[in-house]
Design a protein around this nucleic acid. Structure first.
Lengths: 348, 348
DNA sequence: TTTTATTAAGTAAACGTTTTCTATTTTTAC
DNA sequence: GTAAAAATAGAAAACGTTTACTTAATAAAA
């Protein structure tokens, strides 16, 4: 690759009049005993020559690289972007490289990425899987890869999961709306294929039932399965479509609870464009508290997930488990969501 | 790393009763002549054993890895996210791995990332540099790294640049506002340290002068240098602060041209919260056409940069130059921006 | 003083590929 | 029918590290 070859450990050894073993020990923070003056001499020679050990050779010898990977279904979703930021920060602080894999919601791509990561001796990955079967993931866990699941339920997966209390947050949001006097609450969602979505929906139903409101199927609005040919943000258009359905069907709900903020923005857009006032005519709520939620007009009432912090946390777990070379317990860590009241909801 | 060791080329060779050289030639698409039946036998043996060549060994032998890296100042900016998507798509299609480096606007981090990439024999990077000095980048270009600059001017850099006609877009936006009858047009911007920002500003001035309007310094609103301790999106808050200044100073501009959409959203938020109607009382415009721009209410009039496409383009250039092993010319490719009229601006 | 640990440095063997040589066979050319 | 050329396969030499093993010198223990 380089015209001007980079110096190798042998060059440094020659320059410092020592063996390559000594250079290796001087450069790496080996606990092998060695003369401090010599170590210093070698180090200064190395830095003078601009020597840096070949990552490839290290990988080969140590059977491990310093990549940490995040695998997500769709990086355009600000929720994942927030998690990415947290992960990236931790990864970077610890001198690992951050690799991003975007599965476009396809399990097959997910498998392919995992295989590639394994092949390049990647030690750890944080994954928001679209596969409902834990077998593939378990297969790599058994081969020694450290994997942390992000925000999902994958029954039988042999790795830890960090997630939010989705059911509780569905309940929290719904109870808040009920507290404002709403009894006819529509539920707008992407297909209920993902566990988190199901959980939020169950929480919504729980809250209704607890308040003696019978859940009504005509209040459930499910977006069409995403059309992957579309390059923009699928959830925004899904929300817009749902709102169009909502208006066309003359649903008499007084509030719409959306499965996440992006869907809520799509819903808001179409409602406002059609002259529906929010929150005067109808209240709208989301989940996530994406950075944009407070900026939108009307500012969006939502449930906050500390997603950046979650990312940090997942990354720290992973690095810790890699450096200690301990296995990861299959714990499920659940973080508590928080209600953020803004202007898109009102008392009736 | 793995408890259950992965098969090596030697295992496959033993299984298929051939030499490792033959296995290597059968697996890779070498143009070395070999018996087709044998190649097939070796391949099926390999795939049956689940053999995949060690990336580390390949790297070591070939002095190159299959990483493509994107280095950006701030991944939270949807503009970079869009570019990332384009790059990632191309990189992934070509069986490269995508590495992301976030410099947090610090030149020093940028240097450190470049060094790390070089050390791990990364062949190519796409970079939106925060360094105003081309020396570091040139140094790596000379070592053989392929680098493409994204959307900036770095005088003296020995690598190609893909960017938009920022000056033209500034002019385009301003002329549009002038065409609507605006003559007092405020300019809201992040610090004018980046070349693209300066260019947009110059375009704005050009347009004013061409319409015989004297640029007025009191119409220039520059955000305070970003406070990096803030975890959220710096540009949103910058916009909000600018709008606060604007209102406090009782500026009588009838339109605000914002340096990008994120700043525009921040501006809009504060204006709307203070009862200022957009576009009735004042017109607001941005640059970028972030996916959100059409969703905001009022939908944002802006200048569209095809940033995802730009990303694709940069990645394709890079991969092409890597595979053909040709140097990259220091061309400057300029893409044309496009006016997107929505609802945040009006005729007066 | 002799024996035994400890410290320090060097030698050489991996790690898993790709690829240049060599060596053998088969095909082509005359 | 022979010589040259092409096809095919194997042996062995890198690539740049880390580390187990050896060796030499020095310090501690007897």
């Amino acid at each position: 690759m380089s015209d001007h070859k980079r110096p190798t450990i042998r060059d440094v050894a020659r320059e410092a009049h020592v063996s390559i073993a000594t250079v290796s020990r001087a450069i790496s923070n080996s606990d092998y005993p060695m003369n401090d003056a010599l170590r210093e001499r070698v180090r200064s020679a190395a830095s003078e020559m601009g020597y840096h050990p070949s990552v490839a050779a290290q990988m080969l010898r140590q059977d491990a690289n310093r990549d940490i990977c995040l695998i997500v279904p769709n990086i355009s979703n600000p929720y994942y972007l927030q998690a990415l930021r947290g992960i990236n920060a931790v990864v970077s602080e610890n001198d690992y490289m951050f690799v991003l894999c975007n599965t476009e919601r396809q399990a097959q791509r997910e498998h392919e990425y995992l295989r590639q990561l394994y092949q390049r001796q990647c030690l750890g990955a944080i994954i928001s899987s679209v596969d409902t079967n834990p077998d593939t993931i378990n297969q790599y866990v058994e081969k020694g890869m450290k994997i942390v699941l992000l925000d999902q339920q994958l029954r039988g997966a042999k790795c830890p999961t960090i997630r939010f209390d989705s059911r509780g947050s569905g309940e929290l949001a719904t109870n808040y709306l009920i507290g404002l006097g709403h009894r006819k609450i529509a539920f707008a969602t992407m297909p209920l294929s993902r566990w988190t979505r199901q959980e939020i929906y169950h929480g919504y139903q729980d809250a209704l039932i607890n308040s003696s409101i019978t859940p009504d199927d005509s209040f459930l609005f499910v977006a069409d399965p995403p059309n992957d040919s579309y390059g923009g943000d699928i959830e925004l258009t899904a929300g817009a479509n749902i709102a169009a359905d909502f208006l066309a069907g003359q649903c008499d709900a007084t509030a719409i609870l959306c499965i996440n903020d992006m869907v809520a923005f799509g819903v808001l857009q179409t409602l406002l464009q059609n002259g529906v006032r929010v929150p005067d005519d109808i209240s709208v709520m989301g989940f996530d508290d994406v950075p944009f939620a407070g900026v939108y007009s009307p500012a969006l009432t939502t449930i906050r997930y500390p997603s950046e912090q979650t990312g940090r946390f997942a990354a720290m777990m992973l690095l810790d488990s890699i450096s200690s070379n301990k296995g990861l317990d299959t714990i499920e860590m659940q973080l508590n969501p928080q209600l953020v009241v803004r202007q898109s909801t009102r008392k009736i």
